[in-house]
Design a protein around this nucleic acid. Structure first.
Lengths: 204, 204
DNA sequence: AACAAAAGCGGGGTGAAGTCCGCTTATGCT
DNA sequence: AGCATAAGCGGACTTCACCCCGCTTTTGTT
């Protein structure tokens, strides 16, 4: 499951001023996103708004994407918690097929809810599973193995199913093409697709 | 299948000098890629190497990604040809399950062979299936429909399977992580994964 | 051949990400 | 408290994609 020890810009013995500035920057980022959307969060504007230098922003977060990863981090960690030790079928206890199904049913709404920030958090110069978001692939791989799929296919399938699950929301669909489901409880198209896919994959 | 009529920078009544310059630019781009890789193909360097102004590069190709799309265009068109009117199982004639299987078996090597350029051709400000590469999703959708999958799932599954097929090579794996298969005829991990996935999906 | 209109050209300008390095400040030790 | 040192800071600088718009060349017309 590979929890990154140092999510982003949170070194172990962080100096007090550094911690304060990190909070200030995240706060400023949240405000700017709420007011104008992620597109207008530029490094210069963010630094100015937080009353800090641009160098500081990069020192804390490494890149533009890093800011959004940090913003996502808390929620991502909570999600991971639910998967690792929450109640079944998402958490351990249910059989692998159910857990895989449940994972998609939880993950897609999670990404929908955070889609603006999640999209901004992908670092376009790195392979996608950057930051804390990288839980998906190993988890899927593990469940596929437990479900008894042939070991020779596990690596390929894990990559492909990760792409099938997260790719559409992170990369393949533009922001306008991500409509919330009309009725709040109506299942999303992608959720239904995922359930169908997983159902068939693990049926044999 | 939606063949884009005007692939990139190839207007119908193109002036003679424009056509010549387009060729020059593509030629320079090929040379630069061969010498130094896609990363060093900057708009300034490309313009200078071709002996033209930077404005011209943008007029011809619209964006950096456009250059790589144009480079891919011929091969992409040939691939499309094979799918639309080549021999089965890739072309029409075989049953949908076979065609879907064959599509992945052909598409993955195609992307592997072109991966450097294909990656550079994705426009990171647009939803991914930009340019001529957008054939995949509608084709998959059509075949899924012909295979008798429930219409309610077609849209979701088509997006997800497209992501499963192309996402890993275009987006999810870094360049270093895309090793050619050790033995030239050994099937790639992703090909095997795809065949397995499609086999299960259409088995029921 | 001369002309008008359209198409194309070029390169300076802009905005944004990311780097660098000398200066400042917190921290832990004595 | 005073000091040495490492951590942090800031903002000028570089690089790059992309825009803009006045000038030049081609082309179709007469």
């Amino acid at each position: 499951m590979t929890v990154p020890l140092e999510p982003f810009g949170k070194p172990r013995g962080e100096r007090a001023d550094a911690a304060r500035n990190r909070e200030r920057l995240l706060e400023a980022a949240r405000a700017m996103i709420a007011e104008q959307g992620t597109r207008h969060v530029t490094m210069d504007a963010l630094a100015e708004r937080a009353g800090l230098g641009k160098g500081t922003v990069f020192r804390r977060f490494g890149s533009r994407a890093g800011i959004f990863q940090a913003l996502l981090d808390d929620d991502e960690r909570r999600f991971q918690e639910r998967v690792l030790s929450g109640p079944p079928p998402l958490g351990p206890g249910a059989d692998p097929a159910q857990r895989l199904d449940a994972y998609g049913c939880a993950r897609i709404p999670f990404l929908l809810e955070h889609h603006a920030i999640a999209r901004a958090a992908v670092d376009r110069t790195l392979p996608v599973p950057a930051g804390a978001a990288s839980m998906t692939q190993p988890h899927i791989r593990m469940l596929l193995g437990q479900a008894g799929l042939p070991p020779a296919h596990l690596d390929g399938l894990a990559v492909q199913l990760t792409a099938a699950l997260e790719g559409p929301l992170l990369l393949y669909l533009s922001v306008e093409e991500v409509p919330e489901p009309p009725a709040p409880e109506a299942p999303h198209l992608l959720v239904e697709g995922w359930r169908f896919l997983i159902g068939r994959l693990l049926a044999g």
